[in-house]
Every structure is written in structure tokens, then in C-alpha cells.
Amino acid sequence: MLGFIIQRFLQAAMVMAVMSVIVFCGVYAIGNPIDIVIPPEATQDIREEAIRRLGLDRPLYEQYFIFISNLLQGDLGRSFVYNIPVLELIGGRLPATLELVLISVIAATILGVSLGIYAGYRPDSRISKTIMAVSVLGFSVPSFWVGLILILFFAVNLGWLPAGGRGETTEIWGVAWSFPTPNGLSHIVLPAVNLALFKLAMMIRLARAGTREIMLTDTIKFARAAGLSETAILRRHLLKLISIPIITIFGLELGSTLAFAVVTETIFSWPGVGKLIIDSIGVLDRPVMVAYLILVAFLFVTINFVVDLVFALIDPRIRHGVSK
């Protein structure tokens, strides 16, 4: 087990190193921030002074090594635009995205897996067919449109829920969160529903497919022949057997939603990192872009690492390294 962890850790470090190079070069390639940061009427002296101050006069590889050595000391640079440390900038926005995404992905998984198991367990019932029809909608209707309709319906017409913003926040461990206050929670509902729909549909499909497959196996037949109740079969056998693909998708979705909740955050004016990165790309705020992308890579690597650990924890064949 320890060897497994060390191996995965080294792999993760490699991925991070390669990612940092790609991100740095990629961001360098998309445009020169000087043209945006410095007003066109500035004199040549001011221009050169600014370029030197931002470190843009050095060759790319030197910039990279300066960036990396700063990074290793926990310094991701300062934003060109806001002139505050990038870490502070992103850190201020991250909790908003984090709470929104966690709530929506977890809710979608719990609900989706339950509905999916039901639909797979009774594939011919009318409820199951309704569930599957709704899941097709969840896949095919574009998320920005659903967001707008949600606002129109629940915020404008019915006036039940707020249309945007984070609402009241409260501080836990020095970070502002919306979900503990009733007002903040009411602000989360609509964007969370918007984000969750697609994931809900996917979890339903995944759980249903797994359930249908597993229910036909000899494992289930044998459990039934031994007189196990259907509840015991579903809870003790089925849930474990379908869990691997579900956990995989859960991890991937968690990562990608954290990184790219942009559309929903924009529609609901949710002040998360998604909005920050879109703004930063607009003004070529290099340190923010680089830091954000590296943070995203780090999130993915971490989530995958955790997912692998969870696999090993629940599946003895992975833990014991059984081939096949």
C-alpha cells in the first residue's frame, strides 16, 4: 500500500511539472500583456520601466525558473491588474466556487445514483421510464438556457429565490461561506440546481447501466438463492459492485466543475474563480492565468489521487494488485 502511494505521488509530481511548463509556454504564446496593461500614450521610458518591473524583459526560460522558484516558496506572483498577490485573489474567490460545486456534485451523485439504481432495478416500470426521459433532458438541454429559465421562473415570476449573488455570508476559519446562513443558502439553490442537472443525468445513466448489468450476474442469483432479502442484495452487494465507475466519474466531474463552472457563475453573478479567470483572460493577466491553471491541474491531480486511494480502499483486488 505504501509503495502504491509513493508511486502515485511521484506520478502526480511529474504531471504537475509537465503541466507547469505547458501552461507557462501556452500563456506566453497568447499575447503580450504589456499592450494592455500600459496605456498607449505612455513614454518609452515608462514602458521599459514597466516591462523590467514585471520581469518581462528576461528570456522565457529565465521567467519560468523565477516563477518556479517563487512557486516553491509559496509565491505565485502578483496580478498585473489588481496588483495584489494572486494567491490572495484566487483564495478569496475559491470558497464561493467550492461550496457551490461541492453542493451540486454531491447532491447530483446521491440523487442520481438512487434514481439510477431504481431505474435499473425495475427497468419496465413507468417511474423508471419517466426517470430516464428526464435524464435525456438533463443531457441535451444547454446549461445556460436552463440557468436563464430557472431565473425567469423561480426568481422573476414566482419570486421565491434570489436571481444572483452570494447573499449573506458567515466566516468559518476566516473564510466567507454562504451555505450556513438561510439567506446565503437560498442564493445557492438555483445555481446549484443549474450545475447539478447534467451531472444528475449522467449519474442516473451510470447507476442504471451498472445496476442492470450486475442484477443479471450469478453473484446476485447466488445471493438470492441463499435467501438474502432484496434490500440486503441492493445495499451490500449491488452498491459496492457499481461503485467503481461512479467514483471515477464523481472525481472527474468534481474537478472539471470546480475548474469550469464559468457559465453558471456568470449567469448567476456568482463571484467564484470561473468569473475571475474569464476576466483575467480578457486583460491578459498572466500571473492569474498561470496560477489558476496550475491550481486546476493540482486539483485534478489531487482528486485523481484521492479517487485511486478510495478504489484501493473499497476494492480488494486493486489493493492487492491482482492483474485481470
Binding site: 450469478d218 453473484t219 442469483k221 447466488f222 452487494h237 459496492k240 476494492d315 483486488r317
Partner: peptide, 13 residues
């Protein structure tokens, strides 16, 4: 009842 293939009848997890 007992089945033919014991690797398929027992739950691997």
C-alpha cells in the same frame, strides 16, 4: 443452489 463458476458467484469486493 450452487452455480458452475465460483468466481462469478462470490462477490469480489
Amino acid at each position: 443452489m450452487i452455480f458452475q463458476d465460483p468466481i462469478a458467484t462470490l462477490n469480489p469486493m
